[in-house]
């Protein structure tokens, strides 16, 4: 006889939460989940109920997650919203780290060269005409940007491009594209600027200082100073 249950169901304001024990075997868990849901879901109305699944310290593969979703979905009006686990694999952790890392590079990106990083890019140098920089996140250039910069290239609309000298031939953020004017009027007024996608889905160029209001999430510092 079992002393405690492997599956507990709790109702919250957001919906149902399924707590799945992380010490029993996966097959036991599945079996009990199936049983529990079958007896409890009979008297419910047609309305869909979103379910949050908490699996504790159990690691679930993508297949297992799919299996659980399937199992819960079969009970007519339950839909799995999220599956939360306390553990991730090393690969996932590494991918996460890389995606949030600021990669600093001291180089000149010359014509014909493509520099690509998956996180944020901090370039200490120039991007010359014909050169391209791409980043999954934001792009910060301490030198002059005269080539092409593509921020948020893996789908991040919040990404920004900042450069000490902003004279790009093209700016791209996620799917948005902005071509440079055919002639830059004058020499000045192109220093310390940033580019971002505004509310009209257009890439806008502004003073660097405007970023702190437009993208407050850029500040990673906790607390004040």
């Amino acid at each position: 006889m079992k002393k405690y249950q492997n599956v507990t169901i709790k109702g919250t304001k957001e919906g149902l939460t399924l707590h799945l024990d992380d010490t029993c075997s996966y097959s036991d868990l599945k079996e009990e989940l199936d049983q529990k849901l079958s007896e409890s879901s009979k008297s419910q109305s047609d309305k869909l109920i979103s379910v949050m699944v908490q699996v504790g310290n159990r690691y679930l593969t993508a297949d297992q997650k799919e299996e659980l979703r399937e199992l819960i979905r079969q009970k007519k009006n339950l839909v799995v919203d999220t599956i939360n686990s306390n553990v991730i694999t090393k690969q996932e952790a590494e991918a996460e780290r890389i995606a949030h890392e600021v990669v600093s590079i001291a180089k000149i990106v010359r014509s014909g060269q493509v520099l690509e990083v998956s996180g944020d890019l901090l370039l200490i140098g120039d991007v010359n005409p014909g050169g391209t920089v791409k980043a999954g996140g934001n792009i910060y250039i301490l030198g002059a940007l005269k080539g092409i910069a593509h921020a948020g290239c893996s789908g991040n609309r919040e990404a920004v491009i900042a450069a000490s000298v902003m004279k790009p031939s093209q700016l791209r953020i996620e799917e948005c594209l902005n071509r440079a004017p055919d002639h830059y009027p004058g020499e000045d007024g192109r220093e310390m600027e940033c580019a971002y996608i505004d509310e009209n889905n257009q890439i806008t160029i502004d003073r660097l200082q405007a970023l702190m209001n437009i993208r407050p999430n850029l500040s990673k510092l906790q607390g004040g100073f």
Binding site: R110, S111, G112, Q113, N128, P129, G130, G131
Partner: peptide
């Protein structure tokens, strides 16, 4: 100058 830039990149 554009082509020189390209060639410098290759030489580096």
């Amino acid at each position: 100058v554009r082509d020189a830039d390209r060639i410098i990149g290759l030489l580096e």
